[in-house]
Design a protein around this nucleic acid. Structure first.
Lengths: 188, 188, 188, 188
DNA sequence: CATGAATGAGCCTTCATTCAT
DNA sequence: AATGAATGAAGGCTCATTCAT
């Protein structure tokens, strides 16, 4: 166990804070600890006790999505079609990023507030690296692409989809952009 | 004439403000008009007189780059190889975005502070549209790509290059990413 | 209970702020929240926490006087001489307005910051209306006077007394003007 | 002549400034010399040269009305019915105050920016005093009313009319209030 | 005389963080 | 542990007035 088990009321507060933060993330409101305390109906101090910084809270909000991605990645590793495995993983990643606003920030950040975040990001990188290497070995992917490029490229695609006007079509746009990236804009 | 000619001293201040702002942009500091006034050694009022908002100032800082891009675009339109013309224009665009931090913000913004900015962005869009259409007509570019995608995709590439760690290799990385996008990550 | 009971230290600050504001009002200085914080020896934030706007503070300062007036009004309603009751109420009103500078502003304002203020103003209006109607029914008051005229006329009298030079004689002047208004300038 | 004759262009500027200020007064905007300069299409310095302070400008705007009132007063002095003369003068005064927003401020001020204003206010006071004395001698006016009360009372009536909600009925309301004051609220 | 750029004090307001209760 | 009051730095913006051109 990473964390000491919380007392029941403390756990309730923790849940409540994360839930409120999740809502704020979804509505695009920046996380402010005072604000969250008010909405959660508790003192600021309590929020600070649980989450020393807004970043820590944001990463906590992002964690489930990161874990889900990692889980999907694990399954992708079991796929014996290297091209399909990589594409599936990237698709899933992009969908998550565009769907969950906490991910863009957390993924693009170069430094983390929580060890758990670092760990998950590391896991995802490893998975990506592995999938990429297999694809490269199978010669379905260009050779000059390194695993260091995966995160930036995914962040870029997500960013592009967000710049594109229509918020309703966001996921769809992101998928389109990913396909374009994979297949190339230019006809060959 | 775009602007009424400024008095000599006013012009000096204008230049100074823009220069200070340029430096701040380059070092990644957000533009704050009070701050700028202090650094430029003048009263806040002076800065506000010249630039009513930080956005207006940022766009002013970005203008020369936008103009240079537009100029290059005009030359690209004269190129009779549609694929090369588009690729050249996009390359130039990406290089500019990654080199000049003011561009990312200005380009991604959906609303402008200065008419001149709107005008330049419009010009660039038109050029992009034209180059894209020619390329599509020549069937060197995939058919589902619309001109509405160009700005988002360029912003995305630039963003990706910035997420990628090494700041020294930024331009190079951006070029690589653009190539990847054009040719596709996947080998065909 | 009108308000949740404040913690002891918060209550002390509240009192202090109101006291400082009271002094400023008495010396005719406009209320500025930063200024008040400085004079009260506390951070601006504290003042803002207690009073979101200068208007809210001013109304708080005015509240006791408004309540005293309302209390007097209640007694006036018990008087069975309609003319005397109305005159007494108006006299008291005028005296208060001239004595307490916060009242002029609060009374003349068409919109309130605090619900309590609205409530009190409403109460006072009702009392005035009732007293006026009784006086009209008893035919001691001219028929074309409506209850909508009471507040403006009282404000006018107070204003007149303030325009009149001598600040020391202000209350006296105000009483004289009220008498004049009631009896008419013209002899009949 | 009180003033040295202005050069033709200077006179034009003077006129323009006053006209702009008049408009602002009419629309209830406070006079700000920068603002006026902009609207008048000239430099601030020019405005300052003509009018060292906003008060001076406001008084200049008010002057014609004050002169008209004085002229009317002179005619009132020729009326041999003392009651009618006084009432007429006061009515005219009130109508002017309510109609022309510059008057309320200028009349209520205890100190003037321009000698001309002082002079006119003095003239009006004298006229009022004279009319009041005649009325008092004719025993149509209560004895305890002094000429020092006229200005405050007129300001009070105007203020009352402004406090009263409906702006469209302002003049009418003011007349009603004056009548009430003259005849008394109480029936005798 | 006219211009209008420059000044900068001054007010407003927000918010991350601490700490007494 | 929880509370939430207090803090005050920080940033935003306006406007009266001066003075170089």
């Amino acid at each position: 166990m990473t964390t000491a088990p919380l007392r029941k009321d403390a756990a309730r507060n923790w849940e409540r804070i994360v839930a409120v933060a999740r809502d704020l993330v979804d509505e695009g409101t920046p996380l402010q600890l005072n604000d969250i305390a008010r909405r959660a109906g508790m003192g600021v101090g309590t929020v600070y006790r649980h989450f020393p910084t807004a970043e820590a809270l944001l990463e906590t909000v992002a964690t489930p999505s990161l874990e889900a991605l990692a889980a999907h990645g694990a399954r992708a590793l079991a796929d014996d079609d290297p091209g399909r495995a990589l594409a599936g993983f990237l698709t899933r990643t992009i969908e998550a990023q565009v769907t969950d606003a906490s991910l863009s920030t957390v993924t693009a950040a170069s430094t983390d507030a929580l060890p758990r975040t670092t760990e998950l990001k590391q896991t995802l990188r490893s998975i990506g690296t592995e999938l990429l290497e297999r694809a490269r070995d199978a010669e379905v992917v260009r050779a000059d692409l390194t695993s260091d490029d995966l995160v930036p490229l995914m962040c870029g695609i997500a960013f592009a989809a967000n710049v594109h006007g229509d918020p309703a079509a966001r996921v769809q746009t992101a998928r389109r952009y990913l396909t374009a990236l994979l297949d190339g804009l230019y006809v060959r």
